[in-house]
């Protein structure tokens, strides 16, 4: 039963992977002629088959649950980027440079989650993840305000919530 379930989950990942690849092909090419669509279909099928053969499609590299929540995550990330970007700009224009080095804990369970969290920290201007050691992140923050924002753990909770 369990193996059957695993098998069907794998199949579902394969289908979703195929659809995403085909969408990418269409966006980049923009062709709607049947012949060219057919060629695109063949090349996408070939690439998905190769990825499947290379065992590149599994729940760790291609988490299905995450995929559905990704648009919300990007919207939220945009909000965070604008917020911290404004305070970084303020620091650059005023001569108020007092950086901090802080250690924070990541509460994510798997490596994808931690990588995601560290990436989100680095992506928001004003904070950079320097080192990752299991669940400890060493973060360089541009100001006290920004490091406090991070220590409040809002971001941590949000990204852990993505993976539930």
């Amino acid at each position: 039963m369990a193996t059957k379930q695993k098998h069907s989950a794998k199949f579902l990942s394969f289908i979703v992977y195929f659809v995403v690849l085909f969408l990418l092909w269409y966006i980049l090419s923009g062709y709607l002629k049947p012949l060219l669509l057919f060629f695109g279909l063949i090349s996408v099928l070939f690439v998905s088959w190769m990825s499947y053969r290379a065992r590149a499609i599994d729940s760790d590299t291609f988490p299905l649950k995450l995929l559905l929540r990704l648009p919300f995550y990007w919207l939220w990330l945009t909000k965070e980027i604008v917020k911290s970007g404004l305070s970084t700009t303020k620091i650059i224009w005023s001569n108020n440079y007092s950086p901090e080095l802080i250690k924070i804990k990541a509460s994510q369970k798997n490596s994808t989650g931690i990588a995601n969290y560290a990436n989100a920290i680095t992506l928001t201007p004003g904070t950079v993840t320097i080192e990752v050691e299991k669940n400890d992140l060493l973060v360089h923050a541009l100001s006290k305000e920004l490091s406090k924002d991070l220590q409040s753990g809002e971001m941590d909770r949000f990204i852990t919530g993505l993976d539930k």
Binding site: I81, V82, G85, T88, T89, I92, W93, Y97, P99, T122, L123, T124, P125, G126, T127, V128, I130, H140, L142
Partner: peptide
């Protein structure tokens, strides 16, 4: 770009570069 020139050390400059990349 201003931050890249103005901030005193490398770690601060990474933040400035991040500002260009994102916003």
């Amino acid at each position: 770009s201003l931050g890249l020139l103005k901030l005193p050390d490398l770690f601060g400059r990474i933040h400035a570069a991040g500002l260009i990349d994102t916003l």
